[in-house]
Amino acid sequence: MENTRPPLPPFTAKSAVEKVRAAENGWNNKDPQKVSLAYTKDSQWRNRSSFVNGRDEIVEFLTEKWQKEIDYKLIKELWAFTENRIAVRYAYEYKNSEGQWFRAYGNENWEFDEFGLMKNRYACINDLAIEAKDRLFTWQGNIRPDDFPSLTELGL
């Protein structure tokens, strides 16, 4: 039997926002093994041009991602939801090994099982090179503080 990952479907506006923030916090901690536990054992992803299947591949994908995307900081925002699906928009900032900063903009569509685990994740992402002085995601530590502005508040 799968572990449960509340909040569980069917989602309400409140529980969908909670689910999005939990995902943001998880990814900002940058622990691939822990993040993988939010997905079903056979979860399927499309992330840009990569196709990822199952937790082992999720761990491998995220490990490689966060080795290349240094000082990664992410903000997610609820876009829409239904009973067991959530759509989000997000942005994240990171620098590469040469010190070039980027802001990535994207949208994701998520589908959950009855245990609150994500079974499908479809992500579309675009990267924009930015100057260090143009960074907006400047909080200390991994988790975005509750009083730090949202994407909408930042004008993104």
Results as ranks from 00 to 15, higher is better:
25 N>L: 07
140 Q>W: 00
17 V>K: 09
55 R>F: 01
4 T>Q: 03
151 L>N: 07
148 F>A: 04
82 T>F: 00
149 P>I: 04
46 R>L: 11
1 M>K: 13
137 F>G: 01
14 K>Q: 12
34 K>P: 01
122 Y>D: 08
32 P>Y: 07
1 M>S: 14
28 N>E: 03
127 D>Y: 08
85 R>Y: 08
152 T>N: 15
108 E>Y: 09
48 R>V: 13
123 A>K: 01
149 P>T: 01
145 P>N: 02
80 A>D: 09
42 D>N: 14
118 M>K: 04
108 E>N: 05
2 E>N: 09
79 W>V: 10
118 M>R: 02
1 M>W: 11
8 L>E: 08
121 R>N: 15
88 V>W: 02
138 T>E: 11
34 K>A: 12
116 G>H: 01
114 E>W: 05
21 R>K: 15
44 Q>S: 12
88 V>G: 06
47 N>T: 12
50 S>L: 12
116 G>I: 05
31 D>Q: 08
19 K>I: 09
14 K>R: 11
115 F>K: 14
124 C>E: 13
133 K>V: 10
70 I>M: 01
10 P>C: 02
142 N>R: 03
103 R>E: 06
15 S>Y: 11
118 M>G: 05
8 L>C: 07
125 I>R: 01
30 K>S: 14
53 N>T: 13
114 E>K: 11
44 Q>G: 08
19 K>C: 11
142 N>Y: 10
106 G>I: 02
151 L>K: 11
55 R>Y: 07
94 Y>V: 04
13 A>M: 13
135 R>Q: 08
38 A>D: 12
95 K>I: 03
107 N>T: 14
91 A>R: 05
124 C>Y: 12
115 F>I: 00
53 N>L: 13
156 L>K: 08
80 A>N: 08
24 E>N: 09
107 N>I: 14
70 I>E: 05
141 G>Y: 10
68 K>I: 01
109 N>G: 15
139 W>R: 02
67 Q>E: 15
138 T>V: 06
130 I>C: 00
10 P>Y: 06
104 A>Q: 05
90 Y>H: 10
124 C>T: 14
